[in-house]
Design a protein around this nucleic acid. Structure first.
Length: 512
RNA sequence: GGCCCGUUCGUCUAGGGGUCUAGGACAUCUCCCUUUCACGGAGGAAACACGGGUUCGAUUCCCGUACGGGCUACCA
């Protein structure tokens, strides 16, 4: 049987980067084993449904290159892939009936208010966690404690009720988790989970199992938050007489600083995205930033996520999706939660940026430049922008930084670094700069190396050391005291522009 | 509180009884390169939570404690 994994998010808002990582691992595992990866939407909670969330999830996965073989928006033969629609087909009711008929589930007529009363009562007795289980079940209003007549009477009157799993007490439920190894629980501590809610919708516990069975999922890969309910799930499989899938409970992503798991708040507070794509909350209008909009490459984002809790055992850190597929294994997933480091995330992007060719980056930069400076100028040509990229490439982490960090390659400076001017601008220097113009005009080759030599010769001829005027010259050309390779910049700007800039500086700088 | 999971440099991690004077990466510091700033190169500081066992020998195995995380809904 081929490996089949799924990612089954709830459309309750934007997809958290931790969720993306879970999807990624499930995807990698499926691909690694030549199996299929499914996207299923778990929308059984009508109260938490957020419009647009489903589209957001799909778009996020596409952006990341985590492409499902089947699922909402991706086709497949196990349709529908949305639980609300599957409910219409009656699949959940069928399975709950099977459990009920076998005596492993029962009707419970207790209202939420009554349950709340029980909890309060227990709390006042010093028990902070009352639960509906083998111990409390005999004193509750459920079909186990009623005659068939009473039950059918209540059902006939449409009395609100749920269906609960009848968990046997006193058993040890053990299983082998692909990342954690052997794990075991005492079934006495597992509560009688609600299988079907009063509104007729299945809960996650029932729905995911029914769907995993029907969709032939072989490996259930999910977050660590599901580990405590895994024994209930295993019991359901057992009661159904169907083999359980292999489980992998992944460690969670933790806040960069402080305690707890990574949340939306941390992103706002520390200034990094927690979502793959930008998200605008439809209710509040609040906008949360996304990795895509921040300028991250999807490859870098995926690479970074993959390394947060997994490594291939070597010292390699840069992986393409194909390499990840080739090497990924749950045995090498770290068991403890991983604290997210925004700085390292940027580093991954920097590394991926350097892998891009100069011409690719130049083309992208040309597009950006055209938006800012308009078309029809040589500075927005691909050739010019590629030249700019060569000068700037190893000083940026994001493509969006080319323009801001290399502004002077596109615009004549309006201001000049005051400190350098104060220190270096004097009659001698001025005379030198003025007299350098003819040198530039007559330069046979307007290229970095020869220009640098003639600059040095000219300085020497003027009785100056290059150091006396180099930085000043840089400020005159770019306005800034530091930046890209000086003569590389001069070459790129070209003869006309450089001379223009010098003449302009001569007018702008204070007389001396 | 209860249950479950976890615990190596500030962070992500390698390590699976002797090879550990514990390796790499990010961040940080110093130096070199350089006209500057970056990049790059070299180097530094920096960790096995604690206590018991087991063993000739524990970072590696077991137990306990501490700490961290998750769960404890008719949410997923």
């Amino acid at each position: 049987m081929s490996v089949r994994t799924r990612f089954a998010p709830s459309p309750t808002g934007p997809l958290h980067m931790g969720g993306v990582r879970t999807a990624l691992y499930a995807y990698l595992f499926a691909r690694r084993h030549k199996g299929q990866f499914i996207l299923r939407i778990e929308d059984t909670d009508r109260n938490r449904y957020v419009p647009g969330a489903e589209e957001y999830i799909i778009e996020s996965l596409k952006w990341c290159g985590i492409l499902p073989d089947e699922g909402v928006g991706f086709g497949g033969i196990h349709t529908p892939y949305r639980q609300s629609e599957r409910k219409e087909q009656g699949v959940y009711a069928d399975f709950s009936k099977r459990l009920m008929d076998a005596g492993h589930a029962y009707y419970a007529f207790d209202t939420p208010e009554e349950l709340e009363v029980e909890r309060k009562k227990a709390e006042s007795l010093g028990n902070p966690a009352w639960q509906y289980d083998a111990a409390s079940r005999p004193s509750m209003r459920n079909s186990l404690n009623m005659t068939d007549g009473e039950v059918s009477d209540l059902l006939q009157k449409n009395t609100p009720h749920v269906i609960r799993l009848k968990v046997e007490s006193g058993r040890t439920i053990a299983f082998n988790d692909m990342v954690r190894g052997d794990v075991s629980f005492d079934s006495s501590l597992v509560d009688d989970k609600v299988l079907i809610k009063a509104d007729g919708m299945p809960t996650y516990h029932l729905a995911h199992i029914v769907d995993d069975i029907l969709m032939e999922v072989t490996h259930a890969i999910r977050g660590e938050e599901w580990l405590p309910s895994a024994p209930a799930h295993i019991l359901i499989y057992e009661y159904l007489g169907i083999a359980q899938p292999k489980y992998a409970h992944l460690p969670l992503l933790l806040k960069p600083e402080g305690n707890g798991k990574l949340s939306k708040r941390d992103g706002d507070r520390l200034g990094f995205p927690v979502f793959p794509l930008e998200w605008k909350d439809p209710a509040s209008g609040e906008v949360s930033s996304g990795y895509r909009e921040k300028g991250y490459y999807p490859e870098a984002f995926v690479n970074m996520l993959a390394m947060l809790g997994w490594n291939d055992g070597t010292e390699q850190e840069l992986f393409s999706m194909d390499e990840l597929i080739e090497r990924f294994d749950f045995e090498r997933v770290h068991k403890a939660g991983a604290r997210f480091d925004p700085e390292k995330a940027k580093w991954f992007n920097e590394q991926w940026l350097r892998k891009q060719s100069d011409t690719t980056l130049g083309g992208n930069l040309a597009l950006q430049a055209e938006v800012v400076f308009g078309a029809e100028q040589h500075i927005v040509s691909k050739a010019y922008c590629t030249g700019a990229v060569r000068l700037l490439k190893d000083r940026v982490q994001f493509e969006g930084e080319f323009l801001e960090k290399g502004r002077y390659l596109f615009e004549t400076p309006a201001e000049y670094d005051e400190k350098v001017v104060a220190k270096r601008w004097n009659p001698t220097a001025k005379q030198f700069v003025e007299s350098f113009i003819p040198v530039l005009e007559s330069a046979a080759e307007f290229r970095a190396e020869p220009l640098k030599s003639s600059f040095e010769h000219h300085a020497a001829a003027s009785g100056l050391k290059p150091g006396d005027v180099l930085q000043l010259f840089r400020v005159i050309v770019s306005g800034q005291g530091s930046g890209v390779d000086l003569f590389g910049m001069v070459e790129l700007l070209g003869r006309t522009e450089v001379i223009n800039r010098i003449q302009r500086a001569l007018l702008q700088l204070p007389s001396c």
